[in-house]
Amino acid sequence: MIEIKNISQAYGQFKVLKDVDLTIQDNKITALIGANGAGKSTLLGVIARLLEPSRGEVYLDGVDMREIKSQEIAKKIAILKQTNQLNIRITIRDLVSFGRFPHCKGHLKKADLDKIEESLSYMDVKDIEHKYLDELSGGQRQRAYIAMILAQDTKYIFLDEPLNNLDMRYAVEMMTILQRLVKELGKTIVVVMHDINFAAAFSDHIIAMKDGQIIHEGDINYMMDKAKLDHVFDHDFCIAGVNGRKVCIYYNHDSEVQIEEAI
């Protein structure tokens, strides 16, 4: 279990996070939503110890993360940032092999190789494992990175906008894979997202941030509410029901009535 207590973070004078308290629920997909600059990515970075918080603690299974060695944390928490600009040319297989680094320090053993094979197959990139990353489509590249995270074999997976640059089909595919990871492998996943509908369709729990604070938190039904979403994004939303799910419409207000009628 990961608990976040009183986390604050500032870039110079600007406070990005203000006394954030949060408990991440195990075996669930948690979506982190909020307007640009709300502090989502920063919060994710702090939880995954990429950023040092200016105040507060993060507890991993009850232990303060600062007291755990970086290598040990890497066996429990994996993080993928949104910018994966690489200036090295590397094959999928080599990239995925890096996922084993926390376990083997770069000296791959039988168990590591097995895990790499397993991850490549699981993410369906086995047949293109020798292709270079810059030869891949956005969807394939994202899958390759997730395969690396899988090879890292951690309980917790943090993803910063994994749906960026993916078209709808790949985005759905990605989220389906994440659901499978939770169901089949018992992972706990936290995803920063922009598309509320994706969050509503695929996650179990939604956390909404605004101005460096968590302002609403709850399950899908609770969160897909006009008043709350309007507050989070300062925008005029319209919540509709499609196929028994709540869907959020965020453009073209005049057509509100028609949509509801259509249902």
Partner: peptide, 18 residues
């Protein structure tokens, strides 16, 4: 081996326990 990982960039390397 650490440099190999660090070539992936800082956040990636930290994420992998360097």
């Amino acid at each position: 081996k650490n440099y190999d990982v660090m070539a992936l960039g800082e956040s990636q390397a930290v994420g992998l326990g360097v």
